[in-house]
């Protein structure tokens, strides 16, 4: 609950901090990129605050490099 609020709050704060400057200088493309990343950030934070299970990058690493690692360790035993 608090986590969700904090996430949105922070997101708003950050937007309020960076966006006015960007829009005043007509840097729309940058504003879009900023908002994209901010959206990802807010989403992640909110989901995490709601204890939604999210994918783990380390697991991806295990999947990608796992077999190779096993073979290397086999050699080094």
């Amino acid at each position: 609950m608090w986590g969700v609020l904090a996430s949105f709050g922070a997101g708003l704060l950050f937007a309020g901090y960076e966006l006015p400057r960007l829009l005043r200088a007509q840097r729309k493309k940058e504003a879009v990129i900023f908002l994209m990343f901010l959206a990802i950030g807010i989403t992640l934070c909110v989901l995490h605050a709601l204890a939604v299970p999210l994918p783990s990058p380390y697991q991806w690493l295990e999947v990608i490099y796992g077999p190779l690692a096993e073979r290397i360790f086999a050699m080094l035993q």
Partner: peptide, 26 residues
């Protein structure tokens, strides 16, 4: 992304960094 100032993405990336560490492993 051809941004004028690299500082633009510091705050959104920081938000992502709040969550990423916990995702890495249980």
């Amino acid at each position: 992304f051809k941004l004028k100032d690299y500082r633009l993405l510091t705050l959104p990336l920081a938000m992502i960094l709040m969550v990423l560490p916990d995702l890495l492993a249980p």
